[in-house]
């Protein structure tokens, strides 16, 4: 009787401590969510036979986890949204440079780390969305112009706690300097029709309902909302198109990935990264979320293409990371919540 109990106990303990299976595989820590990334990994496995295992979490905890695991981490790739997060991962020495001709050819220079520690895999444009019944496109011009008094009480924004706005303001700081950017952000805050929203979709719904006239969002949220509610009186406006200075062009950010510093399956991980940048994978990667492919040879999804073409801002997205903490402080000072 006693031995039986003991056997059970041992078996139970053994099950509790069961380590992860080891096989030919690539392990990915990803802050890009499961529903966006799993179809891709499934396709890769089908094509190459290589298993892709992944853990999803928010980018902050994932980086803390990589750091804690150090050289014994099971992760080979770190995948996240926003250049700010990738920049921080490189800063913390969690990533390793990859010198790949394929990646260099597929991904434009301003969408990857100058030291090749991370690569953009899709482009996300942060643009203006306005209410067609209340605003004529001719009245809109630039992000900066949203600070002018003519928009008083007509602007809706998402919270400054979201990294997309932090990157946008960070990039503006690198274009205009800190002082002028703070003035612009103060102008935005003065023009708000209501307190900032927790997400882009709610901000657009407020524009559609007439609470305000214009907001700043990532285009794929617009795409998702319109797919669900095609009758909303909303339209996209591409700002900063007529400028020719540093502030010219729509602000773009990326989702991307880098090789972890202590990757156990380095060659396999680089192959996956290269495949993700290839023409086969880019549409799958970007279209599932209505984003833009990072590889310029690949055409965007038809829905996305219908929004028209735009001139992107060409400053390297790494700037957003370097200035992120300062951007957060600036927005705190300006009262952007």
């Amino acid at each position: 009787m006693k031995t039986l109990k003991l056997t059970w106990l041992t078996a139970l303990l053994g099950a509790l401590l069961l380590p992860l299976a080891q096989a030919e595989e690539v392990v990915v820590y990803t802050a890009r969510n499961e529903q966006l990334i799993k179809p891709l990994f499934d396709a890769y496995t089908k094509e190459t036979g290589v298993q892709v295992k992944f853990a999803t979490d928010k980018e902050g905890p994932l980086m803390a986890r990589l750091k804690a695991e150090g050289r014994n981490t099971p992760a080979d790739l770190f995948m996240t949204v926003d250049a700010g997060n990738l920049w921080q991962a490189a800063q913390e020495d969690l990533l390793k440079p990859v010198n790949s001709k394929v990646l260099a050819a597929n991904i434009p220079a301003h969408l990857r780390d100058p030291a090749n520690k991370w690569f953009g895999l899709s482009v996300r444009a942060r643009t203006l969305v306005y209410n067609r019944n209340k605003v004529k496109p001719g009245e809109l011009a630039t992000y900066e112009d949203l600070a002018s008094p003519k928009w008083k009480g007509h602007l809706c924004l998402r919270t400054s706690k979201k990294v997309y706005n932090q990157s946008l303001v960070g990039m503006m700081m690198s274009e205009h300097g800190e002082e002028k950017t703070e003035q612009i952000v103060r102008g935005w805050v003065a023009n708000l029709a209501t307190a900032p929203f927790p997400d882009d979709t709610l901000a657009m719904e407020a524009v559609a309902a007439g609470l305000c006239d214009v907001t700043v969002v990532n285009t794929y949220y617009f795409g998702r909302l319109i797919a669900k509610k095609p009758d909303l009186p909303l339209a996209i406006f591409w700002p900063n198109q007529k400028l020719s200075n540093a502030a010219a062009g729509v602000h773009v950010n990326i989702s991307g990935a880098g090789l972890t510093r202590y990757a156990k399956h380095e060659a396999a991980a680089i192959k996956l990264l290269e495949w993700l940048s290839s023409e086969t994978a880019q549409n799958l990667y970007a279209d599932v979320d209505l984003e833009y492919p990072a590889n310029p040879k690949v055409k965007a999804d038809a829905t996305v293409a219908a929004w028209g073409t735009f001139k992107p801002n060409l400053i390297n997205v790494a700037q957003a990371g370097a200035l992120q903490a300062k951007a957060v402080m600036l927005m705190d000072r300006a009262g952007f919540k």
Binding site: L13, L16, L17, P19, L20, E69, N72, P74
Partner: peptide
């Protein structure tokens, strides 16, 4: 020899 994580990724740690 190389081995993988021992406690990380186990139910015991989660609990």
């Amino acid at each position: 020899q190389e081995i993988g994580q021992i406690f990380g990724g186990t139910l015991a740690v989660m609990l």
